[in-house]
């Protein structure tokens, strides 16, 4: 057990907790940056974990904090990361509940959010592009020339994406099941 790593886990997730506006998926870009550059997860492991988090109860933020904390430093690590990611919300909401009832209609808050929301949409699109490149072509944006083109992976993407566009209320767990089955069939039986 390393006190330094425990502290770093706590601080990293505290930082992530401060800057997550707009729900779980808005967190993925920050997680990607912090956690992958620190070597706590590879981008494949992060994608695997998003699938696990979507198939288990609870908010994504808490689930991923717990998972990474446990992977790095066991139960104590998972408690610290979860505590870290929750603490900013907890403090901010207490202050608002106590003293700042008109918070959501304050002009600076409205202005700040009107700029943050579109930027986050752009950031999430960039994460989606990164994940598509990694999962389908096994490359990242900065190494486009080493493209590894496979019909099989493109086929899975086309099927799953079409399915979600036709059947818009489809539950994420179902998408994970279908893509998992297709992976098993295509890699396990055909290739």
């Amino acid at each position: 057990m390393s006190i330094k790593l425990l502290l770093e886990l706590f601080i990293t997730f505290f930082k992530i907790g401060i800057f997550t506006f707009g729900g779980g998926y808005a967190m993925i870009p920050l997680i990607t940056e912090e956690v992958i550059t620190k070597g706590w997860l590879t981008s494949e492991q992060l994608m695997d974990f998003i699938a696990i988090s979507e198939s288990t109860p609870g908010p994504f933020a808490i689930n991923i904090a717990t998972f990474i904390g446990y992977n790095q430093q066991g139960v104590l690590g998972s408690i610290l990361t979860t505590f870290g990611v929750v603490l900013p919300s907890f403090i901010i909401i207490l202050i608002i509940a106590k003293a700042f009832h008109k918070f959501a209609s304050n002009k600076y808050v409205v202005g700040f959010l009107s700029g943050v929301k579109p930027v986050i949409v752009g950031i999430i699109f960039s994460v989606a592009v990164g994940f598509i490149l990694k999962s389908i072509f096994n490359i990242s944006v900065l190494e486009l020339s080493e493209i590894d083109f496979k019909w099989s992976t493109l086929l899975i993407f086309a099927c799953v994406f079409t399915m979600t566009r036709i059947w818009k209320k489809i539950h994420p767990i179902f998408i994970i099941l279908v893509s998992g089955m297709m992976g098993l069939i295509i890699y396990g039986l055909i290739l």
Partner: peptide, 16 residues
């Protein structure tokens, strides 16, 4: 094998 497929599913989830 299953997770190779699932990662593509996750890319679709994030895109959506």
């Amino acid at each position: 094998f299953a997770f190779k497929g699932i990662r593509i599913g996750v890319a679709v989830l994030v895109l959506n």
